[in-house]
Simulated scan of single mutants.
Amino acid sequence: MVFRLGELFCGPGGLAWGAMNADIGDPAYKIVHAWANDYDASTCETYTHNICPTDPDSVKCGDVRKLDIDSLGSIDALAFGFPCNDFSVVGEQKGFDGTYGPLYTYGVKVLKKYHPQWFLAENVGGLRSANEGSAFEKILSDLKAAGYKIYPHLYKFEEYGVPQARHRVIIVGIRDDLPYEYKVPSPAPYKDIDNSCKTALEVPPIPAGALNNELTKQNSKVVERLTYIKPGENAFTAELPEHLQLKVKGAKISQIYKRLDPSKPAYTVTGSGGGGTHIYHYSEPRALTNRERARLQTFPDTYEFMGSKESVRKQIGMAVPCKGAKIIFEAILKTFAGISYDSVPTNLKE
């Protein structure tokens, strides 16, 4: 059973890599690329270069609100990591009133048009509390109404061997005329994996001349400040001399000039980088390179990101960790193949 996958808001291809590399030991069950859409040109270039280099026309670059859904083509599965800006726990939560809030509805339109056998929708953990929980209820209701049994779960990717604390709501849906019941894969098989950020960045060493591995230029004051910040500390918890302290009023974000703790998974990789929000190395007084950030997102070193250094940083920050996605797609394939696997109850109400 080969599933042709369509993607909206495809990003640089974290979900796609997980889907194309999903392997349940039966070559009859696999996922192949059909088409994808994203609005950012460099992101689309990255996706095309790595996921479908021989079929560039299958990547539709442009605003989803202007996308001709009827022309996309038949699919067996849909993935959409709809933009999370208005559902994030950081900053003001605008939810459905924001520019990005209603974009999930384009995923619903594709489901109603093509009736794929299953879908995977992804968003930030803050989605559960946006609009006092009503946004999440509305999204789940709309997905059910499109004709799907849904299985929402808050996945903590560090529990699945990913070297990063990244918590995401993922909703798997199976068309309600099909006899399959998806179960959330258990993190138990991954509990003995060393998912420390140090191991991720150093084993194996990043090779000389690696792709997307340029150092960020740091000014001397930042370098000096970092020498006072210990691994795991940030600019507000470290003991800094007066001339290096940040004069910030109001909220003190814990991610500002925060250095990684080498014994733990990294904190969440984001697309930001200004004002001390880069991820900072545990032993060197510098920000991580994009290749190091990509390793925390479990992209292979051969994965080449296209565009400016700033664009690449944003692309990596908005991706789904490749290996985390692969685990979920393999669970979906096993569901359809009738292969049992260790599972846990969902931690979210349907």
Rank of each mutant, 00 (worst) to 15 (best):
I279V: 10
T46E: 03
Q297L: 00
L201P: 07
S272H: 14
Y155S: 02
V110G: 11
T48I: 05
D177V: 03
P56S: 09
F80K: 04
G275S: 11
L211M: 13
Q218Y: 14
T227I: 12
K249I: 11
S263E: 15
A145M: 08
A294K: 00
L143Y: 01
Y280R: 06
D57R: 13
K349D: 15
D57Y: 07
G271Q: 06
V169T: 02
A130H: 01
E330H: 03
V89H: 15
V344A: 06
E132C: 11
I75T: 08
I327R: 02
L127D: 05
D342A: 15
E304I: 04
C322G: 10
P300T: 05
K326N: 14
E350A: 14
L296K: 00
P262E: 13
S186C: 02
T227F: 10
M318W: 07
N50V: 02
L244P: 09
I332T: 09
Q297P: 05
K109E: 13
L333T: 09
K149V: 10
K198S: 14
P205W: 10
P265E: 02
I193G: 01
D97Y: 13
M1L: 11
V223M: 10
D301R: 01
T302F: 07
E350S: 14
D192Q: 13
T237F: 01
H49N: 15
I256C: 13
A325Q: 09
Y190S: 02
A22F: 00
E181R: 14
F336I: 14
D55R: 14
C322Y: 09
G6R: 05
T237P: 08
L215T: 11
Y104P: 03
L127H: 05
V162C: 01
S42T: 12
Q315W: 05
G6D: 08
L8Y: 08
F9P: 09
S88R: 11
R128H: 01
V32W: 10
H33M: 00
D55S: 14
V2W: 07
K264L: 08
